[in-house]
Computed example of a mutant assay.
Amino acid sequence: MAAVLALLVVGGMALVNAVSGDPDSKGPSATASSDGGGGSPSASAGSSSQAPALLIRVVGAPTKVVVRIPDGEILFTGTMSTGETYRYEETPLSVVADNGASLEVAIHGEPQDPAQAQRTEWSVPERS
């Protein structure tokens, strides 16, 4: 009986880790973090002197987000959970969120005004 209970506990922990792990995202510079700090595996994001082109942090309810480049290639599509942070270095970008009021968004280090509408769109221009 103890062995069955141990297997249930280990299986439950593995399931929780699998569900709460990093989301499957395309693009090497997108990353998620549950601590709100985020991080980026791209070399350019390691520099503290330059903010990422796009920073998205979920501060409210989970929401569906789509990040794409102008040619239509989707870099990320999925539901971001509360506390997750994504960083992108690519430009230009288009971002659409089902519930923009749940997000904090910064473009080139400039915080964007909080969204009032449910469906919200942002454009990330190339760096000048």
Rank of each mutant, 00 (worst) to 15 (best):
G60D: 02
G60L: 04
W122D: 02
T91R: 05
S40I: 10
L8G: 15
V10D: 02
I69Q: 12
L93D: 04
I56H: 01
G37T: 11
G60T: 01
V66K: 12
R119F: 03
G37H: 09
D71R: 07
P111F: 01
D24P: 08
V4D: 07
N17K: 12
A61Q: 14
R87A: 13
V19P: 03
E126D: 13
R119G: 00
P28I: 13
H108C: 03
L5C: 14
A32M: 01
V9K: 00
E121D: 13
S25W: 12
P52R: 05
A117D: 15
N99S: 12
T82M: 11
D22K: 10
A106T: 10
S34Q: 08
G39F: 11
A30L: 14
G11D: 03
Y88Q: 05
E104W: 01
A106F: 02
E110G: 01
G36A: 09
Q118C: 00
D35Y: 08
P28H: 15
L7C: 15
S34H: 07
A32I: 00
A32W: 01
S25E: 13
V66D: 08
D71T: 09
D71L: 03
E73V: 08
A43G: 09
P23C: 06
Q116E: 14
S40G: 11
S42Y: 02
V124I: 10
V95A: 09
S49R: 08
S49F: 05
G11N: 05
P62Q: 02
S40Y: 01
Y88K: 02
A32H: 03
T63E: 00
V67H: 02
S102R: 01
E89P: 06
T77D: 15
G46Y: 05
S94K: 12
A14C: 11
V96S: 11
G109L: 03
G83T: 04
A51T: 04
A97I: 12
G72N: 13
A117H: 05
E121K: 12
P114V: 09
S123Q: 14
G27Q: 07
P92F: 05
S49H: 03
S123N: 09
H108D: 13
V10I: 15
V96L: 12
E110W: 01
A53T: 06
A51D: 10
